[in-house]
Design a protein around this nucleic acid. Structure first.
Ligand SMILES: NC(=O)c1ccc[n+]([C@@H]2O[C@H](COP(=O)([O-])OP(=O)(O)OC[C@H]3O[C@@H](n4cnc5c(N)ncnc54)[C@H](O)[C@@H]3O)[C@@H](O)[C@H]2O)c1
Ligand SMILES: NC(=O)c1ccc[n+]([C@@H]2O[C@H](COP(=O)([O-])OP(=O)(O)OC[C@H]3O[C@@H](n4cnc5c(N)ncnc54)[C@H](O)[C@@H]3O)[C@@H](O)[C@H]2O)c1
Lengths: 222, 222
DNA sequence: CCTATTTTGTGAAGGCTTTCACATAGATAA
DNA sequence: TTATCTATGTGAAAGCCTTCACAAAATAGG
């Protein structure tokens, strides 16, 4: 039953392919709501502004999910992508730094619906420790290693200031966790077997700035 | 004086190069704080976990900024990258949807320090319209087209629910704006000359999920 | 001034990703 | 059953990006 696990495949799957799988999954939710039983690579591509060939190629790395002349079965493909991404289960998550952005994430119910459950909060502010956020009591950051070690938590969202993010991450690694979503604008140093994804909003604004200044339009006249 | 504007260069600059320029800029701030006058491609690469060759290649698209045997002048290179990215000025920004994530962004002072000034807020909730957030009175979304048209605002951050994001964006485009940072988990349809960057946190969590499930470690044993 | 050392800038090579294009297989209809 | 149509799956080609490797340029030290 492990036919989609990458470790058993010859080819390395690229990061962009995995990111697009997320998009296909999202697109399939839309198609499913519309009540369609099947969907073509062309339709999926249109929803996420990609090419049909890209969609087919990406999916083909993991198997033959479609039917020629018909397309892909919506429910089935969605389940298969969920399985590939590992989102056919619940992930328990801890969040460190219950400030502006941390609070916003805790209040966001959609994550839980998608199987990403924030179940533990940490902070170092005495006014916050012990207080209740959306049913979760904020723990003292001092205890993070012992509270995460051997717990059911496998991912951590880091929402602390950049100046302390590396220290917090060192503790997360010490506790044996291997997946970190980082909002602090710093490059975190972690061992090779720990996965870090960065959310860098300033970088996106800077990209927009560059695009405007350089008039990067696709149909600009020279 | 426009020697770094892409429209005047032969080569197309890749998206990844521009994103890395943001990283170099951030790294240069660290180096500058350390008091160094010059910095090598090796040092810059180390800070952002890239290769020295990548750093040199990226910079070489825009000119020869370094001195052989010595490295790059920190202050000067930082200014040059800022100019390339268009962040050697202030950008006035509007934010639509003053909810969980929108409020967090408004409260984030670092953006203003970097030249990204949120100067206008919009919402459709009567309880929020007219209220004051960090010194800005929330405007009614009904007036967005007229209030943005011809204003000093050139970028918009979209923090509304996915179900209404496209409608809000249609108005932003109608008002003549061409740069959007979108937090809603939908693929926005815009004309070719409008730039959209998406912040998709669920996608990053899904990538972490995939990495954990597939044990994607760089030094894993087969 | 000369030599050793450092580090840039850059063609070329290599590697990776996307797009192309079509054989293939199943659907649909008569 | 046969013909027609549709859309997949996939090698091959094209395109793009990163890494290599080294000449060139400048420093530093004697
Ligand atoms: N707020 C935004 O819109 C935004 C945007 C982009 C990036 N970021 C980044 O996200 C991070 C958080 O930003 P924010 O605006 O929420 O800041 P914030 O100051 O509101 O929140 C930070 C929280 O971390 C806690 N904290 C500080 N040191 C800690 C420690 N050692 N251990 C545990 N908790 C600690 C603080 O008590 C606070 O609750 C920062 O790195 C910031 O640069 C924020
Ligand atoms: N909060 C998070 O952590 C988080 C994480 C990932 C993605 N997102 C996305 O960000 C967006 C905002 O999320 P949130 O948690 O802040 O939601 P929220 O409900 O707290 O805020 C949404 C705001 O938009 C306003 N709004 C609704 N319709 C509007 C309209 N037509 N015009 C103007 N304003 C309107 C609401 O009044 C509200 O103030 C959503 O698309 C969500 O999917 C949020």
């Amino acid at each position: 039953m492990d036919e989609f696990r990458e470790t058993e495949l010859k080819k390395r799957i690229s990061e962009s392919t995995i990111r697009r799988l997320s998009l296909y999954h999202r697109a399939l939710e839309i198609v499913e709501e519309n009540g369609s039983e099947t969907v073509s690579s062309k339709e999926l591509a249109k929803i996420e502004k990609l090419t049909p060939a890209q969609v087919r190629k990406d999916l083909s790395f993991f198997g033959s999910f479609g039917t020629r002349g018909l397309g892909y079965p919506v429910k089935d493909l969605k389940a298969k992508i969920a399985r590939i991404l590992g989102i056919d289960r619940v992930w328990n998550i801890a969040l460190v730094g219950v400030g502006n952005i941390g609070s916003a994430l805790v209040s966001y119910k959609e994550f839980a619906r998608q199987g990403f459950k924030i179940v533990k909060l940490f902070d170092n502010d005495q006014r916050k420790i012990g207080s209740n956020h959306k049913g979760i009591v904020v723990s003292d950051i001092k205890n993070i290693v012992s509270e995460l070690s051997g717990s059911e938590i496998e991912m951590v969202v880091v929402c602390v200031p950049g100046s302390v993010a590396q220290f917090v991450v060192n503790d997360i690694v010490k506790a044996g966790l291997r997946a970190i979503l980082n909002f602090a604008p710093v490059n975190l140093k972690v061992p090779d077997d720990v996965f870090v994804r960065n959310e860098n909003m300033a970088m996106e604004l800077e990209y927009l700035s560059y695009a405007l200044v350089n008039n990067h339009s696709k149909n600009r006249v020279k």
